[in-house]
C-alpha cells in the first residue's frame, strides 16, 4: 500500500505532510506518495532529520490511497488529522469538509 510521511509542525503544531521535494505542506494532496518500501524508508529517515533540526515533531509513515491527485489516509484517525474534526460545529473554516 502506498504511504506518505506526516508530522506536526513544531511551532504551530499543525498537521503537515512531507512533499516529494522534502518540504512540509498542510495539504495532504501535496504529500509525496511513496510507492515502495525503500522510498518510504528513505523519506522517513529524511523526515527524522527535520525532527532533529526542530522543524517538525511526531513523524510517522501512514498508509494512503492515491488516485486522481487525491490522497486519502486509510485509517480514520489519519483522515481526521488530514481533514479536520468531524464535529458539526467545528470552527476551523479553513479546512476541507470531512469525507467519510
Amino acid at each position: 500500500m502506498p504511504q506518505i510521511v506526516t508530522a506536526n509542525d513544531l511551532i504551530s503544531g499543525d498537521v503537515v505532510f512531507r512533499t516529494a521535494d522534502g518540504a512540509w505542506a498542510r495539504d495532504v494532496n501535496a504529500a509525496g506518495v511513496l510507492a515502495d518500501k525503500a522510498g518510504a524508508e528513505a523519506a522517513h529517515a529524511a523526515a527524522l532529520a527535520d525532527v532533529k533540526a526542530a522543524v517538525v515533531v511526531d513523524v510517522a509513515l501512514i498508509d494512503v490511497t492515491a488516485a486522481d491527485g487525491k490522497v486519502v489516509p486509510v485509517k480514520l484517525r489519519e483522515r481526521i488529522r488530514a481533514f479536520g474534526p468531524t464535529v458539526k460545529a467545528d470552527y476551523r473554516a479553513d479546512l476541507k469538509p470531512y469525507v467519510a
Binding site: N8, L10, G13, D14, A54, V57, D58
Partner: peptide, 28 residues
C-alpha cells in the same frame, strides 16, 4: 530554546507537560 532547536522533544516534553501543554492530533 525548543523553537531554536537547543532542546529535543524528549527534553522538552516533561517541561511542557508540567505546564499543561500537550501535543494532540491536530495541534498543541
Amino acid at each position: 530554546r525548543r523553537v531554536a532547536g537547543e532542546m529535543t522533544e524528549e527534553e522538552f516534553r516533561p517541561h511542557r507537560l508540567m505546564n499543561g501543554l500537550y501535543l494532540q492530533l491536530h495541534a498543541y
